[in-house]
Design a binder for these strands. Structure first.
Length: 912
RNA sequence: GCGGACGUGGCGAAAUCGGUAGACGCUGCCGACUUAAAAUCGGUUUCCUUUGGAGUGCGGGUUCAAGUCCCGCCGUCCGCACCA
């Protein structure tokens, strides 16, 4: 064997061997226990990045380990291939999205193969191919027939940069998740999936997902946002009084009342939702959203109301704006009758803090027990009445500016007095239901999933619009509805809509001329079922139910936490929807979920100073020339005309000087000849996620070429716990490379020996058990540490039969992590077959326990000495040995310990 | 504002049940080998005023014993955000 591991040669060789032997192809009919290991499939953006490498390495170690422990493993890979970047590339570079995407897939596939992942490439799929999205269209139509898809005119989030609609989930702080542009509201006819039908199931199902991170379950729980409460109607009392007044004495009601009558009819009422019906006697106003029909009706005849509504709409939606925005209201002059007291009338406001999208778009305000209502009431001087006692405090007059939201006894509330909060809620709901003016309900934050996108590069929605028949599903025998190839991207908007012929078809139902739906599906639909298609991919249907059910659910799903809500919620919904229509008997798609951390890297930036105006520049340059000033001197003189900006620098261009200061010759050179730009300094940024904007990315490919796949894989698993961020460093990858060479030397040695080495045998078996447990728990950093310990121990051990056995076993233990090296060593050592097919070594339980233990001796809880005793030594022996210790004798002097605590095999604590 | 996670050497971290804090790796330093360098190997690397003492963000508490449990702060990160 060579003394140096030739990764380049070895990687290529074993990758070919695995491929030729179809080693990692999953057998649908295997009698072995099954294990479905899946990492979130990548978007083919161009090249793989370190995040992919880390993600897929983790999954790979688990998949290889599972194979070694006798499982039939399904570990597939594919491409989430539809989406905006392909269209952006088309617009920027004039290439076709399909060509661009497929080229990227080819590149990235080669890169993944270069890392030696144990993937079943026979099941590879790309969502942009008709043989995938055609089946998706069929499933969409199935859901349509089952009533889980509907079309509705709705205000949508419109991204003005990407020129498309975004789902609520894709709007972050009022901006598009991709473009970062401020999202506008537009009214459009959109297709929706009835995810809200499954709100309860999706929420309650979380409880069964024991192998999901608590964090993700909680995020989904909050996202679904279930609130139980009372929905009821306020009769508009001021409204009816005016009508009666009109009838009695002939006086005309104010014009706005007439307008409201026309719009809403004579039985006008306001429906509100509350989670605190127990506080109903503390209410002092009713408020509706600016978009509420009542507000609209009032605005029609009241210009002031209209102006107020306009003002509400202009209010920002970002976090900061909401934080500082004042609670504003407009008194409509209408009053609402309290449901428990016809004489009690509440003013009706239009308020900027009430959301039309949540609940009923109207609330009743209980200032004493809701902070927002209190702010509002204080501003408009409305009554603030305490109805829940706060300790001894029961005074109906509520003082202060902090609402009380805690528990207590209901007070000042007529028939509710004396009840606790929960009983009072029930009592009010019971009364409302008995008297017919309200009912207990559940309200969700979750909205239905809008899936229409005005884009080309997505799955065409298989619907045809007919003037006579309305929307008609494309007959299944006409699927797939294939995207046309001849499209142009020279103008923004949807190329499908502009295409001269594609959308013109005849109605499948009546044959009349009709139009194809030109919207495509949100790409999250594509990723909502790909794991099912991986498990089973017949030509004639989306999946074979029996085969899919054999593999599902995915045993271990691994991916980034950024998908904690969107993708994971949609996939859970889609799976349940398929179950609902009887296509699949699987409730939850992912039994185990793991969210891995990012790969981070240090970042550096230069601070640049430059003249802020083009007009000023010639003046300054002239002065510099006349007075022979340096750029720095000119800055000292004209500093007020300069602005500073940040330029991120690739870390490899930054030089760390011996005194710790930083310099960057590249950028200094770049601006050396410039008239006005001063490189003010080079600074260290944060260690953060690799990103193009921070210029701190590291391309895996040259790294793999330099160090080999195994060193890169080993580094990805080392040091940082997998759920935490992994800081990339040159020193780190070199350390990994050194280790690869080190175990190669160990495996190459021929130091056969005789006899047993009990201590090494123990270490070996503890390591076998420990690494197995760590890999199963995905605690790769701990497994790596244990392997280091084992290798250290073997290297130090004298030749023996045990040592030779330990070397052989170590090959198996590192095989999931550094598979190429393991195969090479395994073959060189004369073993039959592939190490990838070899069984995981068996543990001798007898060797897991030590026969001697080190016992700590403490005095008053502080460590003073350690002694070695046989394992299981009786307490008396331990105590006697402790008291006999020289150090302890010296420490205690004449004193006798007052108390002795002995924890067998652990410690002796002497209390003096 | 609400919810959650986290805080341990110069750095990444370990300590799985309340029982020897810092395993393992990185970096640095010293040494061996070498004409030299690389590689490799050995040693060392929490801090201090070092026969000892202190130490797991800070302040308290429970306990024979606390990184771990309890109470109160501070800080960092993540999610949600006028949710009725």
């Amino acid at each position: 064997m060579a003394t140096r591991f030739n990764a380049l040669k070895s990687d290529a060789h074993w990758q070919r061997v695995w491929e030729d032997a179809r080693t990692f192809a999953a057998d649908d009919h295997s009698p072995k226990p099954r294990s479905y290991v899946l990492e979130m499939f990548p978007y083919p953006s161009g090249r793989i990045h370190m995040g992919h490498v880390r993600n897929y390495t983790m999954g790979d170690v688990l998949a290889r380990y599972r194979r070694m422990t006798g499982h039939e493993v399904l570990h597939p890979m594919g491409w989430d291939a539809f989406g905006m970047p392909a269209e952006n590339a088309a617009m920027e570079k004039g290439v076709h999205p399909g060509g661009w995407t497929r080229d990227n897939i080819a590149t990235m596939k080669a890169q993944l193969k270069r890392l030696g992942f144990a993937l079943d490439w026979t099941r590879e799929l790309a969502t942009c191919e008709p043989d995938y999205y055609g089946h998706e269209q069929a499933l969409f139509l199935d859901l349509y027939e089952a009533g889980l898809v509907y079309r509705k005119e709705s205000a949508v989030n419109w991204d003005p940069v990407d020129m498309t609609v975004l789902a609520n989930e894709q709007v972050i702080d009022g901006r598009g998740w991709r473009s970062g542009a401020v999202v506008e509201k537009r009214k459009l006819s959109q297709w929706f999936l009835k995810i809200t039908d499954f709100a309860d199931e999706l929420l309650d199902g979380l409880a069964d997902l024991k192998d999901w991170p608590d964090k993700v379950r909680l995020m989904q729980e909050n996202w679904i946002g279930r609130s139980r409460g009372l929905r009821f109607r306020f009769i508009l009392s001021g409204f009816s009084t005016s009508l009666e007044a009109n009838g009695e004495d002939g006086a005309s009601p104010p014009p706005f009342v007439l307008s409201v009558v026309e719009t809403l009819g004579p039985d006008a009422s306001i429906e509100v939702f509350t989670t605190r019906p127990d506080t109903i006697f503390g209410s002092s106003f009713v408020a509706v959203a600016a978009d509420h029909p009542l507000a609209q009706a009032v605005a029609e005849s009241n210009p002031e109301a209209a102006a107020f509504i306009e003002r509400c709409r202009q209010g920002g939606t970002t976090a900061a704006e909401l934080e500082t925005q004042e609670k504003l209201g407009f008194d409509t002059g209408l009053t609402a009758r309290h449901p428990f007291d016809p004489e009690w009338n509440l003013p009706v406001y239009i308020a900027n803090f009430v959301l039309m999208e949540y609940g009923t778009g109207a609330v009743f305000g209980v200032p004493a027990h809701d902070q927002r209502d209190l702010d509002f009431a204080r501003k408009y001087d409305l009554p603030v009445r305490r109805v829940v006692s706060e300790g001894e405090q029961t005074d109906p007059v509520f003082e202060g500016d902090t609402a009380y939201t805690g528990p207590g006894t209901i007070v000042n509330s007529r028939f509710l007095d004396g009840m606790d909060v929960e009983s009072a809620k029930r009592a009010v709901i019971d009364r409302a239901e008995a008297e017919g003016w309200g009912q207990g309900t559940t309200v969700y934050r979750l909205r239905d999933w809008g899936v229409s996108r005005q884009r080309y590069w997505g799955t065409p929605i298989p619907i045809i619009h007919c003037d006579a028949c309305g929307p008609v599903g494309v007959p299944k025998d006409q699927l797939p509805v294939v995207l046309p190839e001849d499209v142009s991207f020279d103008v923004p908007g949807n190329p499908l809509d502009r295409h001269p012929s594609w959308k013109h078809v005849s109605c499948p139902s009546c044959g009349a001329p009709a139009r194809r739906e030109t919207d495509t599906l949100d790409t999250f639909v594509d990723s909502s079922w790909y794991f099912i298609r991986f498990a089973s991919q017949p030509k004639d249907q989306p999946f074979d139910r029996a085969v899919a059910e054999r593999w599902l659910p995915v045993g271990q799903y691994i991916g980034g936490v950024e998908h904690a809500i969107l993708h994971l919620l949609y996939a859970r919904f889609w799976t349940r929807a398929l179950a609902h229509i009887g296509r699949l008997d699987v409730a939850e798609p992912f039994a185990g979920l793991f969210t891995q951390g990012m790969v981070t890297h240090e970042s550096f930036y230069a601070r640049l100073l430059s003249v802020d105006s083009v007009e000023k520049l010639p003046d300054i340059v002239n002065v510099m020339f006349e007075q022979e000033l340096t750029k720095r001197e000119a800055y000292d003189k004209f500093g007020e005309h300069y602005v500073s900006s940040t330029r991120w620098l690739p870390p490899e261009q930054v030089i760390i000087n011996s005194d710790g200061s930083l310099s960057c010759p590249t950028i200094e050179q770049e601006f050396a000849g410039s008239d006005d730009v001063i490189v003010d300094g080079i600074f260290r940024g944060r260690v953060e996620k690799m990103s193009k904007s921070k210029k701190n990315t590291v391309d895996p490919e040259p790294i793999v070429d330099q160090y080999g796949a195994d060193a890169v894989r080993w580094f990805m698993l080392s040091d940082s716990p997998p759920e935490r961020d992994l800081p990339w460093s040159e020193a780190g990858i070199e350390g990994a490379w050194r280790f690869v060479q080190r175990i190669w030397r160990l495996f190459s040695e021929t130091r056969e020996g005789e006899g047993e080495d009990k201590a090494l045998a123990r270490k070996l078996h503890q390591t076998i058990a420990g690494v197995a447990a760590d890999v199963e728990a995905l605690a790769f950093n701990k497994a790596v540490a244990k392997l280091y310990e084992l290798v250290n121990a073997i290297e130090k051990a004298q030749p023996s039969a045990t040592r030779a056995e330990a070397v052989r076993t170590a090959m198996l233990l590192v095989a999931p992590m550094t598979p190429h090296l393991a195969e090479e060593a395994w073959a060189a050592a004369g073993n039959e077959g592939l190490i990838a097919d070899a069984p995981w070594p068996a543990v001798d339980p007898a060797l897991l326990v030590e026969d001697e233990v080190t016992i700590a001796i403490q005095v008053n809880g502080k460590l003073r000495d350690t002694i070695t005793l046989p394992k299981g030594a009786p307490k008396e022996d331990a105590e006697a040995a402790a008291l006999a210790s020289d150090k302890i004798v010296a420490f205690l002097g004449d004193k006798q310990p007052k108390k002795v605590i002995v924890v067998p095999d652990r410690l002796v604590n002497l209390v003096a």
